[in-house]
Write a protein that binds this DNA or RNA. Structure first.
Lengths: 351, 351
DNA sequence: CTGTTAGCGCATTCAC
DNA sequence: GTGAATGCGCTAACAG
């Protein structure tokens, strides 16, 4: 029997264990192990670090958070994790947070404004130091409230026009996708537009409209069909689009999910892609490249968006009083041509 | 100016604020608001609740956790969230946890045993009360360590043969999928087998083997091709399978991702599905039903698995000393026939 | 049922 | 540089 009789299951070493073992006070240990301070090279400091390592000491984040009033945790709000885009974004945010010794936790809203408040509260109950929201709406009522409460806040993927945000250039992405189809010779191009409450969808519509206007296409609005972001909606809207007359020779879908739905509708209608119908998606999720007909889509640099969002949030957390100007950072998308797009039926290949 | 000069940004009400306002001690407030105790109907209790509500009081989970030695948080370990199966499982776990007033946090390992340890430590650093692991391997070195440390632990989707686990019946699922193909008249059925370290994949292989053996097929091993769980691997293995001779008339893929890869390989080889090649997947992710050729697959009750796993974990957390017998709960999968399977080329339709 | 006292583990004064 | 004292917000043990 060594030592005194302790708990049967090895209890975690505390700061006091380290202090005793190193022959110093707990304050000293606390200071030596404070990541924010410049690391001391003194002999005592070395010894403390050595003892801490030997005992496998890890500071109790709850106690530390309680005292510091900072938890080193950030909250991320997404509509749903079963949407690969959101899963990838969260993974990237978690990785970016880890690089800064922070931990990211997540909650979902199902894109329902009603559950947004409770999801945010569940995050705040975990005492996050700040939030990354991907659910912003123009009329969002939760965000102003968070602002007033002084909670550090950054939007990602969608913006509300007011709060600091890191987004892709959706207008440009929409323009690139549409130009790609126009350049192939398409004129009758339908748009699966996404929901009006998401700035990302609205931006892509704007890019579509600009490209179509430039091309001298008339009455563009008739080509624009609202949807949600889901596959089902894509299929439903796709079915409708393919039954309109004149039937479009190409469809630009607001994201890869709805594009998959359009592909399903195309097959159901007996149309072959890309021979009879071209389809462009958005986001370049891993699936896009591996669909039976690889999907032409717009690549979005999610890891950059995540890294910038975390960096911006970290800055806000560090200096909460430097009035944040509410800047929007915009990152560039790029078109990835694949097999789902081709010149319209009966057209000679361009060039 | 009301009240005393406080911090500019509304600080959260503490238990003391409530106590003062209600004219009682903090202990009383603490007891009245203790969810674990039966709610008192006394007048004081009512008043305390009313004041707490009015002040918008929320207990500080860190302080509470520090004192109680329970955080009300559980940790979930998954290979990756960009795999829809894992995203859905985590969402279900988070929902099941919320029903019990617990919060679920997640970390990823990329199915890499090396990063498993650090991912688990990051979870433990957050002071989770217990863990749900979906990454178990037969030779897992982290799990025994967690056991020794007395950390409540439940496996999900994969088991290690020792630890308590909640899984789908992979053997049955594999059998059902294979029987479906056999019943359609296929004899030359290839298996994209998944990795040997995952019990889920191994079980599906066993079900495949049983069905094939029952059908009197010889030399089954030649039909079994290892893979990972990813789409790329499915495509690669699919390409290989379709170049073997005799070419299989059907493929059973270990999951929907690899099935998508096989579909891509089939198209690249100019084979039409299901006319020239039948394909069965596993998991029934939302995509499966909406692929251009809707995928026949095996449905897995992820929300039940999640609910059972959380329930089991909650039990372990509540009574950590009732030696847990290491039981495995097995839930039933079901085959969902869709358009990707049909009788083999040249066969009359059965019946 | 209620209040008093003590302390979870840590970080911060403030002296030295 | 270092250590003693104090308290973050909450809950447990105890006495009334």
């Amino acid at each position: 029997m060594t030592e005194t009789a302790g708990p049967a299951r090895s209890a975690r070493a505390t700061i006091r264990d380290v202090a005793r073992e190193a022959g110093v006070s707990t304050s000293t240990v606390s200071r030596v192990l404070d990541e924010r301070l410049p690391p001391s090279r003194s002999e005592t400091a070395e010894r403390v670090r050595e003892v801490a390592a030997r005992l496998g000491y890890r500071k109790d984040s709850r106690a530390s958070a309680l005292r510091r009033q900072q938890s080193g945790t950030i909250g991320v709000l997404v509509p749903r994790l079963s949407d690969t885009v959101m899963a990838i974004l969260f993974e990237s945010i978690a990785a970016a947070a880890a690089e800064r010794q922070m931990f990211a936790i997540v909650a979902t809203t199902a894109d329902d404004p009603g559950s947004e408040r409770s999801a945010v509260e569940s995050l705040l109950d975990q005492h996050v130091d700040g939030l990354v929201l991907t659910t912003a709406r123009p009329d969002d009522v939760v965000i102003p409230d968070l602002r007033e409460r002084g909670i550090p806040l950054v939007l990602a993927l969608r913006h509300d026009g007011v709060t600091s945000a890191v987004v892709g250039d959706d207008e440009l992405g929409g323009y690139l996708a549409t130009r790609h189809l126009l350049d192939l010779g398409h004129r009758e191009i339908a748009l699966v537009a996404g929901p009006p409450y998401a700035s990302s969808a609205v931006g892509r519509v704007a890019g579509f409209t600009r490209a179509m206007t430039e091309a001298g296409i008339d009455d563009i609005d008739r080509l624009i069909h609202p949807s949600t972001f889901g596959m089902e909606s894509g299929e439903e809207v796709g079915r409708h689009i393919l039954s309109t007359s004149p039937r479009p020779t190409a469809v630009f879908a607001v994201n890869d999910n709805t594009a998959v739905g359009v592909l399903a509708a195309a097959r159901a209608a007996g149309l072959s892609v890309p021979d009879q119908l071209s389809v462009v998606g958005y986001n370049d999720i891993p699936l896009a490249a591996r669909l039976p007909v690889p999907l032409t889509t717009v690549h979005v640099p999610f890891d950059q968006i995540a890294a910038r969002a975390v960096a911006a949030l970290a800055r806000l957390i560090a200096s909460p009083d430097e009035a944040p100007p509410g800047t929007t950072t915009t990152l560039m998308p790029s078109l990835i041509p694949r097999a789902s797009t081709a010149p319209p039926p009966g057209a000679r290949a361009p060039r």
